[in-house]
Design a protein around this nucleic acid. Sequence first.
DNA 1: CCCTCCTGACGAACACTGTTCGAAGCGAAC
DNA 2: GTTCGCTTCGAACAGTGTTCGTCAGGAGGG
Lengths: 246, 246
Amino acid sequence: MEHDLPEPPWRTPRKQPARRSLSREAIVEAAMGVLRKEGIDGVSMRRVATELSTGAASLYAHVANKDELVELLFDEVVAEIPLPEPDPARWREQLTQLWVDSRAALMRYRDIARAALGSVPLGPNALRVTETTMQLLRLGGVPDQAIAWATDVVGLYVSASAVEGAMRAQREEGRLDARGRYIQGEDQARQLQEYFAALPADRFPTFVALLPHLTTGTDDERFRFGLDLLVGGLTGLATGPRAAGP
Amino acid sequence: MEHDLPEPPWRTPRKQPARRSLSREAIVEAAMGVLRKEGIDGVSMRRVATELSTGAASLYAHVANKDELVELLFDEVVAEIPLPEPDPARWREQLTQLWVDSRAALMRYRDIARAALGSVPLGPNALRVTETTMQLLRLGGVPDQAIAWATDVVGLYVSASAVEGAMRAQREEGRLDARGRYIQGEDQARQLQEYFAALPADRFPTFVALLPHLTTGTDDERFRFGLDLLVGGLTGLATGPRAAGP
DNA sequence: CCCTCCTGACGAACACTGTTCGAAGCGAAC
DNA sequence: GTTCGCTTCGAACAGTGTTCGTCAGGAGGG
């Protein structure tokens, strides 16, 4: 970084100048860059290794698995979720905000949320988010068993929504095919419109009747809709706000 | 099947006796078998082709893509969801039952639900399920915009829950590693217990306090918990049951 | 009856993937 | 000074989805 002049050729080359730099942190950092740019499918062992100008096999000294690497990535993403200072008077808003922020952080890294589905996240940062979530639910007076299940359920919903949002974003981005043909999201949207217009109204009367509403609203609004349903239900379970206690 | 004696060598071999049998239906059927036994990752073009005793390239005459094949599979699975005859007096129970049945049908085919996340299912059978869902919500007097969003939201939740359930089932199944070592689900559960027991109670007080509740309940109960939250919220949006009408 | 034409079948190949093996190289410890 | 152990990393293995070019068989026309 400081000076990238070519090494004088008469000097002995010193193959690894001090570049024992390969470490778990460096690998995760490089992988995060790939993840952000190309999504989880872009994160291959070879791709990450190339980013560090080495071979794929070298990564296995610091990371057991690709699965383990993805877990590390996920927890790194979760670290970006801002945590509130729990306030008993505003536990509902804080909960909603926390979950909205969670989804936003996940979507910032494309389809990383796919890693959360099917494997309960238990990294250090994920634990901190879970702890805060549970604290807020407790402040609201939600029963303990409901708290445990609710964190699970909402986590599932947030992740699923993030995955769906990432897919939609990728589709609208207009990705180019292997051939180089541009598949504009616009084209697909038009095809969908045609498909909908051709649906037999006698067999799908309600669906057809609701067509205008189906494409209404942004992803965030739809997410908020479901989230409000869940939070509303949790409020119903609450015995009213109570002070934090042991 | 009837006789698999070797063909007498002096007979002309007749390479394709009448085996123009390869068709889209046959491919989907074969793939369904693989899916049920080994999950979505087991469904590879070569694997399905082998099941039909042919090569992978042959499938591409009937199916554009692997993605298309998976879409076909998904819709075939959705076909197994039993649809109720909508009854205005019981719209809530019917809705809940429909969603429980949907999750059950998905889980019957391992992790096929992964295909639903990130691509709104629009096959003929999926449309029938969606139509019924919307009819039931209408019977309950849920506003149109809420109906559109609710089908989306709950579909997401059902799929996500099915994925999680499939993963857990696979884990508990005790799969053998590449080495042949048995990784019993029991072992992993014990490791998890140890990890939880070692958590610092001062940094994660609420989490640690709720530990007994975290492992309580079956997957179905947890799913029902979230589903009841959602249905409860939808009931709150309803203007009361009304007769079906245009 | 024969000769096209065309579509489905399919072996081979391409560019990938995750992971393992074995041979090096290096630093530290004895 | 030598040995031990940890990194590094090229090569290879067994997979993956997909495409290409060839080939055979049936349909249709003359």
